[in-house]
């Protein structure tokens, strides 16, 4: 059984009299431990597709099966648990909470998991500090997001996605505003996590060089997805 199975996903937005098909009849099969990259023009539906996989946006039609079960048949709480524990989402834009420090931002997903990590508060904190070290922000754990550059904030959001040991990482242009060196650092981290822990990655990127490093490359165009 594939880990993820998307069947004929449609997502339409009605604006005025017009209907936009943000995702148009997309089907995709993803096995555990795959690393998929998706490229495509701006507005081609990449973010919408990731959000549908991530349990954030309900498709107009079609099904998303996670380990054989349609996630949109879940009730609200179960769907929240899926977002919390199964998915690690790296959003395209700033998504940190401004009143929390970097470390606390990382602890937040654990709070929503109701602190069910073995080892309690200390283990959670150790994990946050360790992850921040891995994205090169070991010296910023007590800083507030407003005290960080855009690229640093981006890396905090990357670290946060790993906090609950997600099975699937959905990364929406995660290296968008990073310099080249940091970008390749992040890619190395992703590949390491992907290989060592068999965590599935679906990554949207503009950078074709980055996309080429992945085993499975896809392209989106006007809501449709196809293998490159």
């Amino acid at each position: 059984m594939p880990q993820l199975l998307m069947e004929n996903i449609m997502k339409s937005y009605v604006i005025g009299n017009e209907s936009i098909h943000a995702v148009n009849n997309a089907s995709l099969e993803v096995n555990r431990g795959e690393f998929i990259s998706i490229v495509g023009h701006s507005g081609s539906g990449k973010t919408t597709l990731l959000s549908i996989i991530g349990g954030i946006v309900k498709p107009t039609s079609g099904r998303v099966l996670f380990e054989g079960t349609d996630i949109y048949s879940f009730d609200s709480d179960r769907l929240s648990e899926y977002r919390c524990e199964t998915i690690g989402f790296m959003f395209q834009f700033a998504s940190l909470l401004p009143m929390l420090t970097v470390k606390e931002n990382l602890m937040l997903p654990v709070v929503f998991k109701n602190g069910r990590r073995a080892g309690g508060a200390d283990a959670n904190e150790r994990k946050a500090v360790e992850l921040l070290g891995m994205v090169g922000l070991g010296d910023k754990i007590n800083a507030y997001p407003s005290q960080l550059s855009g690229g640093q904030q981006r890396r905090v959001a990357i670290a946060r996605a790993f906090m609950n040991d997600a099975e699937i990482i959905l990364a929406d242009e995660p290296t968008g505003d990073l310099d080249e060196e940091t970008e390749s650092d992040m890619m190395r981290l992703f590949k390491k996590v992907n290989e060592e822990r068999r965590i599935t990655f679906i990554m949207v990127t503009h950078n074709t060089d980055i996309a080429k490093q992945t085993r499975r490359q896809m392209r989106m165009s006007q809501g449709a997805i196809a293998t490159l």
Partner: peptide, 11 residues
């Protein structure tokens, strides 16, 4: 954002 990263309504 909190809902997107896994907060339930009850949270």
């Amino acid at each position: 954002i909190m809902r997107a990263i896994g907060a339930k309504e009850s949270h």
